[in-house]
């Protein structure tokens, strides 16, 4: 059985493979002639096409980008496309289009930074289709070349969108990082007393940063009292409380006393309603009270030290 099957299927496969090769060959020839046609057209009518292209996009962007700048960008892009066409091939993801792609990525990055929409960015590429349409779709060969070129431009257009999105994401993540840095200052309130005014919601990432900074500051400044002020924290749920507790316990293990201040009436009620236990962690309604206590504590310590010396 097996032998028979193998025997019948092999010739069929061969035939199919042969046909495929033939079709591919036809395609290659077609692409080659289209590419040649496109390259000729683009070279011959360079000035017309380019100025039309620049004008179309210029109208779209409505003066938010200078014409000179736009002309320079698109001119470079045009030359790169022409060069890629000259070396043959219409595969936008191929090696020959490397230069085109890097130019497009650069363009998309600039557009994303300048606040243009993804549509406006992609239009920079798609507009070239509109420019070429009237002069190519006259005869059948031209139409075929136009369609193949359109496919290439579709690919490149998608590339701009991809680059645009990536740039935006980079911007967002770098801003998030900056925000994290900005939102967690550790300040020295008094000799031996440091404070962290927390603003915004607490998640694990932020708690980690706050904890790290606070503990390091305790060591660096040789402080024994820390105050975490949560006046700016909008809500305290079990998760946030958990994070606060962790910080306090860590500070205590290092030999510092940590107080939580700035608990608003509403927050206090929520904490009780949720059944969160703050245990033996000292808490205060206002930063002023917490500071007063901390300073008194520091004073008591140094008084003892002085007595020890005598």
């Amino acid at each position: 059985m097996k032998c028979g099957n193998g025997g019948t299927s092999t010739p069929a496969l061969k035939v199919r493979a042969g046909r495929q090769i033939e079709i591919l060959g036809e395609d290659d020839v077609a692409i080659e002639s289209s590419t040649r046609l496109l390259a000729e057209k683009l070279t011959a009518e360079r000035e017309t096409f380019l100025s039309q292209w620049v004008r179309t996009i210029g109208e779209d962007l409505q003066g938010r980008l200078s014409m000179a700048e736009l002309g320079r960008e698109l001119g470079e892009l045009y030359e790169a496309i022409l060069q890629a066409l000259g070396t043959g091939g219409l595969d936008g993801r191929g090696e020959r289009y490397g230069e085109v792609r890097s130019l497009l990525i650069e363009l998309s990055r600039n557009r994303a930074r300048q606040g243009f929409t993804p549509t406006e960015t992609a239009r920079s590429v798609f507009a070239l289709k509109e420019v070429l349409e009237p002069s190519l779709t006259g005869d059948q060969e031209g139409a075929r070349a136009y369609l193949q070129f359109a496919r290439l431009l579709d690919d490149l257009g998608l590339l701009t969108t991809e680059a645009y999105v990536r740039t935006r994401e980079e911007i967002i993540s770098s801003q998030a990082e900056q925000l994290l840095e900005l939102s967690t200052p550790v300040v020295k309130l008094w000799d031996g007393v440091v404070g962290v005014p927390l603003v915004g919601t607490l998640d694990s990432a932020r708690t980690q940063v706050v904890m790290e900074k606070l503990l390091q500051t305790l060591v660096d400044s040789d402080s024994t009292q820390a105050i975490i002020d949560i006046t700016g924290v909008p809500t305290v749920d079990t998760q946030v409380a958990q994070h606060l507790l962790k910080t306090v316990v860590a500070a205590r293990m290092m030999g510092a006393q940590c107080t939580i201040s700035g608990i608003r009436p509403q927050i206090a009620q929520t904490i009780v309603a949720l059944g969160i236990e703050f245990g033996d962690i000292p808490t205060n309604a206002s930063l002023a009270d917490a500071l007063r206590q901390a300073v008194a504590e520091v004073a008591k310590e140094s008084e003892n030290d002085a007595r020890g010396l005598l």
């Binding site: 980690q208 904890m211 790290e212 503990l215 390091q216 305790l218 060591v219 962790k246 316990v249 860590a250 500070a251 293990m253 290092m254 030999g255």
Partner: peptide, 14 residues
């Protein structure tokens, strides 16, 4: 116990 490093304190808490 003296001189616990911040990183150590955080690990222990975790």
């Amino acid at each position: 116990v003296v001189g616990m490093r911040p990183a150590v304190a955080m690990t222990l808490v975790e």
